[in-house]
């Protein structure tokens, strides 16, 4: 099945935008609406759009990794982020913060295991949504 020229032309533009938007959503998620879950959903929309325009095989090639593997790696990343709290001796999933280059009036660049956890969630959602959708697309 060949999709229309309009879809294919628009996809070229939209996929990149959607993926960029998904990462922006992921990063702003700690204090504002957003986060790994929403980001993952938006990111998977990008790949689904690509699959609609160019077919599932092309989308799988663009992903490079199998979607299941992405989801499982995401689970591993999220777990590792939670278990990281063991190093300072806190309970599982306790937030750990590191502020780089603090100065007067600003705390500096915040780094936390919460962000790593969110990246894990992003990958899990991206992977599992794509697993389901691509499997259904290929069959129906």
């Amino acid at each position: 099945m060949k999709s229309s020229l309009i879809v294919r032309a628009a996809t070229r533009l939209l996929v990149g935008l959607l993926l960029l938007f998904s990462i922006w959503m992921l990063l702003r998620g700690h204090n504002e609406p957003g986060g790994g879950f929403i980001g993952g959903l938006i990111g998977s929309t990008g790949f689904i759009l690509y699959a609609i325009a160019h077919g599932c095989r092309a989308a799988r090639e663009a992903l490079r990794l199998e979607p299941q593997t992405i989801a499982m790696v995401g689970l591993g990343v999220a777990l590792a982020a939670g278990a990281f709290a063991a190093i300072p001796g806190d309970a599982l999933f306790t937030g750990q913060w590191l502020f780089l280059w603090p100065s007067e009036g600003s705390k500096g660049v915040p780094l936390s295991n919460i962000l790593v956890f969110d990246i894990g969630v992003y990958l899990v959602v991206l992977g599992s949504v794509l697993t389901l959708v691509l499997a259904l697309e290929e069959e129906v």
Binding site: T69, M72, V73, L75, G76, L79, G89, L92
Partner: peptide, 24 residues
Amino acid sequence: MTSLWLLPLPIIVPFATAVLAFLF
């Protein structure tokens, strides 16, 4: 410290095993 980690570990270890077993 011991009970802090003894409790979640029986849940975490199978999850971690799941990740590794899937990759291999």
